[in-house]
Amino acid sequence: MNKQPLTLLASYVAGLLFSLGLAVSGMTDPARVVGFLDVAGNWDPTLMFVLGGAVITTFIGYRFVLKQPAPMLAGRFALPSRRDLDTKLLGGAALFGVGWGLSGYCPGPAIASLGGASIPLLAMLATMVLGWLIARRIA
Protein backbone atom coordinates (compact mmCIF):
# COMPACT_ATOMS: atom_id res chain seq x y z
CA MET A 1 0.00 0.00 0.00
CA ASN A 2 1.30 3.47 -0.93
CA LYS A 3 1.46 5.50 2.29
CA GLN A 4 2.56 8.74 0.61
CA PRO A 5 -0.96 10.28 0.33
CA LEU A 6 -1.69 9.35 3.96
CA THR A 7 1.64 10.82 5.07
CA LEU A 8 0.87 14.03 3.19
CA LEU A 9 -2.60 14.20 4.75
CA ALA A 10 -1.21 13.52 8.25
CA SER A 11 1.40 16.25 7.74
CA TYR A 12 -1.27 18.69 6.64
CA VAL A 13 -3.52 17.86 9.63
CA ALA A 14 -0.58 18.16 12.06
CA GLY A 15 0.39 21.54 10.59
CA LEU A 16 -3.20 22.72 10.71
CA LEU A 17 -3.57 21.69 14.36
CA PHE A 18 -0.27 23.36 15.21
CA SER A 19 -1.20 26.64 13.52
CA LEU A 20 -4.69 26.61 15.06
CA GLY A 21 -3.14 26.03 18.48
CA LEU A 22 -0.78 28.95 17.93
CA ALA A 23 -3.64 31.20 16.85
CA VAL A 24 -6.00 30.17 19.68
CA SER A 25 -3.27 30.64 22.31
CA GLY A 26 -2.37 34.08 20.93
CA MET A 27 1.19 33.05 20.03
CA THR A 28 0.90 34.58 16.55
CA ASP A 29 0.93 37.99 18.25
CA PRO A 30 4.57 39.07 18.60
CA ALA A 31 3.59 41.39 21.46
CA ARG A 32 2.92 38.29 23.59
CA VAL A 33 6.49 37.04 23.13
CA VAL A 34 7.99 40.48 23.74
CA GLY A 35 5.72 40.81 26.79
CA PHE A 36 7.02 37.48 28.11
CA LEU A 37 10.61 38.70 27.74
CA ASP A 38 9.82 41.98 29.52
CA VAL A 39 10.31 40.58 33.03
CA ALA A 40 11.13 44.01 34.50
CA GLY A 41 8.08 45.71 32.98
CA ASN A 42 4.61 44.56 31.94
CA TRP A 43 5.35 40.82 32.05
CA ASP A 44 2.95 38.49 30.19
CA PRO A 45 3.19 34.85 31.40
CA THR A 46 1.01 33.45 28.58
CA LEU A 47 3.94 31.94 26.67
CA MET A 48 5.04 30.00 29.77
CA PHE A 49 1.63 28.32 30.00
CA VAL A 50 1.56 27.50 26.28
CA LEU A 51 5.05 25.99 26.48
CA GLY A 52 4.10 24.10 29.65
CA GLY A 53 1.06 22.62 27.90
CA ALA A 54 3.24 21.58 24.97
CA VAL A 55 5.84 19.94 27.23
CA ILE A 56 3.20 18.00 29.18
CA THR A 57 1.46 16.85 25.98
CA THR A 58 4.77 15.78 24.43
CA PHE A 59 5.90 14.00 27.60
CA ILE A 60 2.71 11.93 27.72
CA GLY A 61 2.51 11.42 23.95
CA TYR A 62 6.07 10.17 23.57
CA ARG A 63 5.55 7.56 26.28
CA PHE A 64 2.56 6.19 24.38
CA VAL A 65 3.94 6.47 20.84
CA LEU A 66 7.40 5.05 21.52
CA LYS A 67 5.86 1.86 22.93
CA GLN A 68 4.67 1.09 19.40
CA PRO A 69 6.97 -1.04 17.19
CA ALA A 70 7.00 1.64 14.43
CA PRO A 71 5.13 4.78 13.40
CA MET A 72 1.87 4.22 11.53
CA LEU A 73 3.13 5.87 8.34
CA ALA A 74 6.86 5.09 8.41
CA GLY A 75 9.09 2.04 8.70
CA ARG A 76 10.93 3.26 11.80
CA PHE A 77 11.14 6.15 14.24
CA ALA A 78 13.52 8.96 13.26
CA LEU A 79 14.85 10.08 16.63
CA PRO A 80 17.97 12.20 17.12
CA SER A 81 21.02 10.18 18.05
CA ARG A 82 23.52 12.94 18.85
CA ARG A 83 23.66 14.14 22.42
CA ASP A 84 26.72 16.40 22.32
CA LEU A 85 26.71 20.18 22.43
CA ASP A 86 28.97 21.89 19.94
CA THR A 87 29.68 25.48 18.94
CA LYS A 88 27.34 25.35 15.94
CA LEU A 89 24.41 24.17 18.04
CA LEU A 90 24.98 26.72 20.80
CA GLY A 91 25.62 29.55 18.31
CA GLY A 92 22.53 28.67 16.31
CA ALA A 93 20.41 28.50 19.46
CA ALA A 94 21.71 31.91 20.55
CA LEU A 95 20.98 33.43 17.13
CA PHE A 96 17.51 31.90 17.16
CA GLY A 97 16.84 33.38 20.61
CA VAL A 98 18.08 36.83 19.63
CA GLY A 99 15.96 36.80 16.47
CA TRP A 100 12.92 35.60 18.40
CA GLY A 101 13.40 38.28 21.04
CA LEU A 102 13.90 41.08 18.53
CA SER A 103 11.01 40.17 16.24
CA GLY A 104 8.61 38.45 18.61
CA TYR A 105 8.25 35.64 16.06
CA CYS A 106 9.69 32.16 15.84
CA PRO A 107 9.26 30.22 12.56
CA GLY A 108 6.00 28.42 13.43
CA PRO A 109 3.99 31.48 14.48
CA ALA A 110 5.56 33.53 11.68
CA ILE A 111 4.32 31.12 9.02
CA ALA A 112 0.95 30.80 10.77
CA SER A 113 0.69 34.62 10.67
CA LEU A 114 1.17 34.89 6.90
CA GLY A 115 -2.57 35.48 6.43
CA GLY A 116 -2.14 38.91 7.99
CA ALA A 117 1.29 39.66 6.57
CA SER A 118 2.97 42.86 7.71
CA ILE A 119 6.29 44.45 6.80
CA PRO A 120 7.96 43.37 10.09
CA LEU A 121 6.72 39.80 9.56
CA LEU A 122 7.95 39.68 5.97
CA ALA A 123 11.31 41.17 7.03
CA MET A 124 11.64 38.49 9.71
CA LEU A 125 10.81 35.70 7.26
CA ALA A 126 13.22 37.08 4.65
CA THR A 127 16.08 37.26 7.16
CA MET A 128 15.19 33.78 8.45
CA VAL A 129 15.53 32.37 4.94
CA LEU A 130 18.74 34.33 4.42
CA GLY A 131 20.16 32.93 7.66
CA TRP A 132 19.16 29.43 6.60
CA LEU A 133 20.94 29.87 3.24
CA ILE A 134 24.09 31.23 4.92
CA ALA A 135 24.08 28.35 7.42
CA ARG A 136 23.86 25.81 4.60
CA ARG A 137 26.85 27.42 2.89
CA ILE A 138 29.09 27.41 5.97
CA ALA A 139 27.98 24.02 7.34
Rank of each mutant, 00 (worst) to 15 (best):
A40T: 10
L133F: 11
G21C: 03
Q68G: 03
A126M: 12
R137D: 11
T7I: 10
M48G: 07
L90S: 08
L89E: 08
T46S: 14
L125H: 01
L73H: 15
P45G: 06
L37W: 05
R136C: 11
T58S: 11
A93Q: 11
V13C: 06
S81A: 14
G131I: 04
G75I: 04
I119T: 07
M48K: 06
A93R: 04
G75N: 13
I60H: 08
D86R: 02
V24E: 13
C106I: 12
V24G: 05
R63S: 09
G61D: 12
I111W: 02
T127G: 03
L17F: 05
G99V: 00
S25H: 05
L47R: 02
D44F: 02
S19L: 03
T58L: 10
G61N: 08
T57L: 14
L8T: 08
P109E: 01
A54E: 06
V65L: 15
L114N: 03
D84M: 08
V55E: 03
M72C: 11
F77R: 03
K67W: 07
A112D: 00
L122C: 10
Y12H: 06
A123R: 09
W43H: 14
A10S: 07
G21E: 02
L122T: 04
V129I: 15
V24Y: 10
L51D: 04
P107R: 00
L130T: 14
L9K: 11
G116A: 12
A117G: 00
L79Y: 09
P80T: 09
A10R: 08
A139P: 01
K67M: 11
Q4H: 09
P120C: 05
W100K: 05
I138N: 03
L66A: 05
T87A: 14
Y62P: 06
L122W: 08
R32K: 12
T57R: 01
L114M: 13
G115Y: 08
T127D: 05
M48V: 14
A31W: 06
P30V: 01
M27G: 01
P120S: 00
L16M: 12
M124I: 02
G91A: 09
P30F: 02
L51P: 03
V65R: 13
N42L: 10
Q68W: 08
P5K: 10
S81N: 12
T58K: 00
M72V: 11
P69M: 00
T57Q: 09
W132S: 07
G75E: 14
A94K: 00
W43I: 01
L133A: 15
S11N: 05
G99R: 00
A93S: 15
C106M: 15
V24A: 11
A93T: 12
P45W: 05
F77G: 05
L79D: 10
M124Q: 00
D38G: 07
V129T: 14
D86P: 00
G97V: 11
A23E: 08
A74Y: 15
